[in-house]
């Protein structure tokens, strides 16, 4: 798609901007004053204990969840209740879910071409060409005619990534993409994500894969109880975290 630019240099303009974002589920204050800027071609990994609001944060970015206060702007467009804006942003933002959420009633190929044809209005033939290129890229072109239920978890997640990429998004959001996978399959998905990061895609990724974060991320964000506790480069974050909560978290997960 694009030539590898190297993930540590050549960051572009700010593409995601969160400013004092607050969100509640009923009375529960799930996001507290989140302010964050992500630049083009940047890979941001969000980590934190469960319930810390990291999934909610990235789901706010393509409006799967609505924030109640503050401002979120993606690619210069502010997220409001205006359906046009939301659809415009969703076209630019691809998302990969923990539970894959492939469409079980459609073949792999149809999963990837559906949105291209109905949202991007591409003719079927062109959409299928794009789909086959992407399946090639994620390494499973031979599975195109199968149904999601016939694939392994790792293959399904790679199809899900291809499905998101087919819309030519400027940003990819990953919501714990490897958490539902067997250990043997995690690697094949991480390899695809790694390749994607190297190709210069802007990525926001919620994950528990510390090795991936350390290797690929430009910045690591640590969240706890709905707020951002610490942001830093992986080197700084893993070797000398500043905040006490981060240190506790890292010591917990690195101990086992």
């Amino acid at each position: 798609m694009a030539e590898a630019t190297g993930s540590n240099g050549h960051l572009g303009e700010v593409i995601i901007e969160c400013d004092s974002v607050n969100k509640w589920f009923g009375d529960f204050h799930v996001l507290k004053d989140i302010s964050l800027k992500v630049r083009e071609r940047e890979v941001v990994v969000v980590i934190g204990p469960s319930g810390s609001g990291k999934s909610t944060l990235i789901r706010c970015i393509n409006r799967l969840e609505e924030h109640q206060e503050g401002k979120i702007a993606v690619d210069g467009v502010e997220l409001t209740n205006d359906t046009k804006n939301i659809n415009a942003i969703r076209r630019e933002v691809g998302m990969v879910f923990q539970s894959f959420n492939l469409f079980p009633h459609l073949s792999v190929l149809d999963n990837i071409t559906l949105a291209q044809r109905h949202v991007r209005r591409r003719p079927r033939k062109e959409a299928e060409e794009v789909a086959m290129q992407l399946l090639d890229r994620v390494g499973i072109p031979e599975q195109a005619r199968k149904y999601p239920g016939q694939l392994s978890g790792g293959q399904q997640q790679r199809v899900a990534i291809a499905r998101a990429l087919a819309m030519n998004p400027k940003i990819m959001l990953f919501d714990e993409p490897t958490s539902a996978l067997d250990p043997e399959m995690i690697k094949e998905v991480l390899d695809v994500m790694r390749e994607l990061a190297h190709s210069g895609m802007t990525m926001m990724c919620v994950t528990h894969e510390m090795g991936f974060a350390r290797e690929v991320a430009d910045r690591v964000i640590f969240m706890d109880s709905g707020r951002i506790v610490e942001i830093g480069t992986p080197e700084h974050f893993f070797s000398s975290p500043s905040h006490e909560r981060t240190q506790l978290f890292l010591s917990q997960i690195l101990k086992h």
Partner: peptide
Amino acid sequence: PKGQVEASKALGLN
């Protein structure tokens, strides 16, 4: 599942 609607929303389907 709710995820099906979320996935289709995320793809930009109306």
